[in-house]
Each structure stands twice: as structure tokens, then as C-alpha cells.
Amino acid sequence: MQQDKIFADHVSVAYEKDDESLLAVDDVTLSIQEGEFVVIVGPSGCGKTTFMNTLAGLVKPIRGKVFMDGKQITGPSAERGVVFQQFALFPWKTVFENVEFGLKYRGIPKDERREIVRKYIRMVKLEGFENSFPHELSGGMKQRVAIARVYANMPQILLMDEPFGALDAQTRTIMQEDLSEMFMMEKRTVVFITHSVDEAIYLGDRVIIMTARPGKFKKIINVTADCLIPNRRNLGYDDVVNLKAFRDLKRELWGLIKAEIVEKRIL
């Protein structure tokens, strides 16, 4: 069998809050293949973000191990780039300098860096804003910079933690289409976290539903393989949303999540 790109082996993660240790992720096992787009959906506070931080190496599991290409993950690394919901741009750096940031630490010479930065700023459609500071940009543009910053760093895996959660609905739709396009242009392994069922089905090859805390995997659905026409990445958001397969799947997933919210009273 081909080696998994990421393999989480019976992972449990706790986090401290007010000197109390809470179990956020409970005994989760998952393998992700190279080039796959995996989306994790779940109710608020279900440990999605904690799980992603574990994949990133920012948090250490209390039980179990996470492997990338068969090697255990022990700390953060440029191999796994993270896009955060709150953008996390360096406010004192221009757009160009933000995108350039990781490249400096990979020891890439200056001329080459400039080429790469240009390329990815073009990819996220932000030409002309190279010298702007983040506070001069709208939310959508900020997130574009953050995406370019991670893409330019050539990580093998992209971890996206509700990247569009802070954007308004219109901007969000456009960002989803653009991300889908970018994913086709430069195939990377993506792990994507969201609240939105629509977003999950539209973007994900595989969608994982998580339970409320402590987070476990409730169901895993192979969207591309089992449910939808596989070439939906060529279609616009509107067209996909109106497919019957999409609507059926959405109803099913929403039912699962709603049950979770009602049952555990996390309204």
C-alpha cells in the first residue's frame, strides 16, 4: 500500500483552560493521501482547531502519534503551512514582505524570492497591492495574502483553519471558487476546517463530521468518489449547489450535525 501522507494514530489531545485540563480530541485515527482535499466539519468547540493544531505540530497530543510520510511530527515546520481564520498577517510587514517571510527562512536567494512572491501574489489576484500594509486591505484580501504566504512557502500540506469564517457571504463564495481553482492549479494535500456544510461539500474530496467535545469522528464521506460528479471543481459554486446530489448530501450532513448540537446542548 502506498504510504499515507498524514497518519494520525489513536490521537487524543487535551488543552488547559482555567487550570483545568479538558479533553478536546478523543482517540481519533485518520489517514490522508497525497493530493487529497479533506474537510473537517463539526459544531463549535468540537476540537477541530485543536486537531489541526496537532497536525501542525503546535500542540502535542497526550496519547497517540501523528506521522507525516512515516515520520513522527514533533513540532511546527514549514512542511505544513497553516492558514488561520484571523489571517495572522504581520501588521508591520507589507503584503510583499508577508508573502516573502517563510522563503527567507528556507534560505532562498533574494532574486528567486522575488520571483516566487510575484507568482503567488498574482495567483491570489493581488497584483498592485505588494506595498500595502495589511490594515489597508479588506478581510478577503487579507486572507488572500495569508493564502499566498503559505502557498509560496511550498509546504507539502496546507492546513486551513476556518479560513473564510471571518468573511461576509459574498466574499466567501468567491474565495471558495478561487481556492478550488488554486487547488487544481497546484495540487497540494489540504486539510480544511469549517462550520459550513456547503463549503465542506463544495471543496472536499472527503468530508469528516466531528462530534461535539470531546471530538471524535462521527462519519467520513467520500464526496468525490461516492456522491458527486467528480469534475465539480470545474463548475462554479452556484452550479454545484444546485445539483441534486449536493442537496441530498447537504441534508444528510446537516442532520448529523444538528443532532449533535441538540443532543449535547451546545446551542
Binding site: P76, A78, R80, G81, V82, L89, F90, K93, Y105, V150
Partner: peptide, 22 residues
């Protein structure tokens, strides 16, 4: 976190690039 995820490894770089400017 963002800086760590982008490949910063040394404390000194973290201090110089993130903490001091902020």
C-alpha cells in the same frame, strides 16, 4: 504560531521578526 508554521526555528528570529515589531 504563524511564524513557527512558516519555518522560523530559532528563538532569536521569533523575537526579532515577531515579538519586537509587535
Amino acid at each position: 504560531k504563524a511564524a513557527l508554521g512558516l519555518g522560523v526555528k530559532r528563538q532569536w528570529d521569533l523575537l526579532r521578526e515577531v515579538a519586537i515589531p509587535s
